[in-house]
């Protein structure tokens, strides 16, 4: 196990390096941060000064070496736009995104699992058909469009929930206050919509397959109650794909909360990254991506370990 973990760690390091190189070259290819940040009426002297101030006068490979040197000392650079350490900037915004992502995951499991179970157990019932049709809606509608509709209905027309922004926080978390929770609800639902559909469909197909498995037939034949068959035998088996996908989706939920955050003016990492991309704030983009990659590596590792726990047939490589 230890050998396995060490190896994964080493590989991850390579991924991080590759990532940072790609971003450096990529941002360089897209455009010139100074052109975007500088005041339009700046003269040529001022432009040259800004290029030097941001360290962009060096050749790209030298800029990269400077970055690596600082990164090894834990300094991922300063934001071009805010002049704050990029890492600190992102960590400040992290709780907002985390609670949004976890809120969305929570909602999707809370709603998706029971609905999927129902649709899988009674596939021919009208209820199941409605659920499946609804799940198609969930991933057909573009997030930004649904977001605006949610705001229009629940904030503008009904006035039940606040339209945008993050509410009061307690210890940096907004779900601990009623006001914060009311601000969290709409964006979390918006972000959850796609995941709900995903969980419904995965659960349903898992249930349908499992119900035909010999061991389930056998359990039924043994005279176990339908509830026990469903909740112990079937449920356990469908957890694998659901765990995989939910685990994977947690990472992508965090990474892709960009749209929801910008529609709802949610001050999280997603909004920070899209703002940073729009002005080519390279230090923030690099730091953000490194953090996300790290997160994915951890999530994947956890999912793989969970796999081996949940399904003894899967063994971790290097363990044998």
């Amino acid at each position: 196990m230890t050998v396995y973990l060490l190896r994964r760690l080493l590989q991850s390091l390579l991924v991080l390096v590759a990532m940072s190189v790609i971003v450096f070259v990529g941002v360089y290819a897209v455009g010139d941060p100074v052109e975007i940040l500088i005041s339009p009426d700046a003269d040529q002297f001022e432009r040259e000064r800004a290029i030097r101030a941001l360290g962009l006068d060096l050749p790209l490979w030298q800029q990269y070496l400077v970055f690596v040197k600082n990164a090894l000392q834990g300094d991922l650079g300063r934001s071009f736009v805010f002049s704050e350490p990029a890492l600190q900037l992102i960590l400040q915004k992290m709780p907002a995104t985390m609670e949004l992502a976890f809120g969305a995951m929570f909602i999707s499991i809370l709603i998706g699992l029971p609905l999927g179970l129902y649709a899988g157990l009674k596939p021919e019932s009208p209820g199941a058909k409605v659920i499946m049709a609804g799940s198609i809606l969930g991933f057909s509608l573009p997030t930004f469009w649904v977001g605006l509709m949610l705001i229009m209905v629940f904030a503008v027309q009904l006035g039940w929930l606040p339209s945008t922004g993050r509410g009061e926080t307690l210890y940096g978390w907004s779900f601990l206050t009623a006001n914060g929770l009311s601000h969290l609800l709409l964006p979390a639902i918006n972000l959850a919509l796609f995941k709900i559909s995903l969980v419904i469909r995965l659960t349903r197909s898992g249930v349908r397959e499992t119900m035909l498995m010999d061991y389930v037939k056998f359990a039924r034949a043994k005279g176990l109650s339908p509830a026990r068959v469903t909740y112990v035998h079937v449920f356990k088996n469908i957890l694998i794909p659901v765990v995989t996908v939910v685990g994977l989706e947690l990472g992508s939920t965090i990474a892709f909360s960009v749209v929801t955050e910008s529609v709802f003016a949610w001050p999280g990492m997603g909004k920070l990254i899209i703002d940073s991309i729009n002005v080519l704030d390279r230090p923030v983009i690099v730091a953000y991506l490194l953090i996300i990659v790290l997160m994915f590596i951890v999530i994947n590792l956890v999912v793989d370990i969970l796999y081996s726990v949940l399904d003894p047939r899967v063994r971790l490589e290097g363990q044998a």
């Binding site: 339209s163 910008s262 529609v263 003016a265």
Partner: peptide
Amino acid sequence: YRMIVNDSARTAALLAGD
């Protein structure tokens, strides 16, 4: 003093009274 970059969201926030 809040910053709401998305145009429609800003209008919606005004209409909602936020």
